[in-house]
Design a binder for these strands. Structure first.
Length: 392
DNA sequence: TCTGGGGTCCTAGGACCC
DNA sequence: TCTGGGGTCCTAGGACCC
């Protein structure tokens, strides 16, 4: 199930008098340095696509209105959709903010053997009625088939591929329409003279393995036939949290970069604590003025959760990246991964003598700050100056 | 036409252990 | 003194998705 131009829909619902009245609506493009996140169907007629630089989209469709992504409203609407789906399907997996997989296996008797297309259409109607969001559903016996089928269902429709019809269904698509094939792989396929799923399906498995490696080769052999062994997995555990910013103008000043780094560390730390997680790995990403992207990461023996600890690790990583190449930065990002659950009791002090990145007292303070911000707003408490040690 | 922000997964090399 | 094979973990980079 896929929401139709989700960000455009939500922007309209959030502002019915403004964005809601604009047929030519583009969402995204915080500045002229950004890209379009989503374009209304009318704007797409002009050739505008999501991911396209805002400047170019403006040129293609000068009459279009550009609005920022209504981030909070999108998260809210996505949750509402999810809640409805949980009532209608035994297994639901969120693939992204606007895309969900439903495994209806075992519901045949419940729905008294009705056709899958009828079930799908009922889900589409109920989601629409309860959340105001127009969605499309694709159906099939394999994940990849269902996903590709949603494209044919759009907008506001349903497309079901009957069991046994998978290979014939896939044969109609070009290879770039297969999820998992991007520009790089497409170029390699082109060099072997392959442009469509049907052409790739005519190549023997061994040759695909020889050309593209055993893993990618087997993957391609299966996908072009509509084969996809992956299950719909409802227990989705987050693996990383990150926050990054492209500056309005490139930044070369170390102090200024460090201030930005602190803001990003606070954003990531807040999200981490809200999920009651700790992170063992902190990563810093730097995109230079020439678009060269570099990153550095560091893994700690124990997970951390305070803004301060994240920032301290991030700052030393930023220094080493800047030391290697000192040039104006276009983007800075902080990410955490290797996530572990918070534990309530203080761990034994294995590292006696070594300086700890954060103490139990630091964590208590961080959580108190979170509560104050929940109550009085993000701006109620902000970092003042950069500190050096734990407990300060 | 210069290229967002949030993610996941894969690869390959090196360190280290048995 | 030189040397195997298997495993795990970490790091950096890249491809890809919405």
């Amino acid at each position: 199930m896929d929401c139709d131009s989700f960000f455009v829909q939500v922007a309209r619902l959030a502002d019915p008098e403004g964005a809601g009245r604009e047929p030519l609506l583009l969402v995204g493009g915080r500045s002229d340095r950004g890209v379009i996140t989503s374009a209304s169907y009318a704007a797409r007629e002009y050739g505008v696509r999501s991911g396209m630089p805002t400047r170019r989209a403006r040129r293609l469709c000068p009459d279009a209105v550009v609005v920022p992504v209504p981030r909070g409203a999108c998260v809210e609407r996505s949750r509402a959709v999810r809640t409805v789906l949980d009532e209608l399907s035994p297994v639901v997996q969120a693939a992204s903010i606007d895309e969900f997989y439903l495994d209806l296996t075992g519901t045949e008797r419940l729905f008294r053997g009705e056709e899958l297309a009828v079930t799908a259409d009922r889900i589409r109607r109920v989601v629409r009625e309860r959340t105001e969001v127009a969605v499309s559903l694709g159906g099939g016996t394999q994940r990849v088939v269902a996903k590709v089928a949603t494209r044919l269902a759009k907008p506001d429709g349903v497309h079901v591929v009957p069991p046994g019809g998978e290979a014939a269904f896939m044969a109609q698509f070009r290879l770039e329409q297969l999820p998992g094939i991007g520009p790089a792989f497409l170029e390699r396929l082109k060099r072997k003279g392959l442009a469509t799923c049907a052409e790739a399906a005519a190549v023997e498995r061994e040759w695909l393995a020889r050309w593209f490696g055993p893993h990618r080769g087997a993957w391609l052999w299966e996908r072009v036939r509509g084969m996809d062994a992956s299950e719909v997995d409802a227990r989705e555990r987050r693996k990383s949290i990150s926050s990054e910013r492209t500056f309005f103008a490139d930044i070369d000043d170390d102090d200024e970069l460090e201030r930005r780094l602190l803001q990003l560390s606070c954003s990531v730390g807040g999200q981490l604590r809200a999920k009651q997680l700790r992170a063992r790995t902190v990563t810093v990403r730097l995109r230079d003025h020439d678009y060269r992207t570099r990153q550095a990461g560091s893994t700690q023996p124990e997970g951390v959760e305070t803004d301060h600890a994240i920032f301290r690790v991030a700052a030393s990583l930023l220094h080493s990246l800047r030391h290697r190449r000192r040039t104006p930065a276009r983007l800075l990002g902080v990410g955490v991964s290797n996530l572990v659950r918070q534990v309530s009791a203080e761990q034994l002090e294995f590292l006696a003598g070594e300086e700890k990145l954060e103490t139990e007292r630091d964590r208590t303070v961080a959580r108190a700050v979170d509560r104050i911000r929940d109550r009085y707003g993000r701006e109620a408490l902000r970092p003042g100056r950069v500190l050096d040690g734990p407990g300060e």
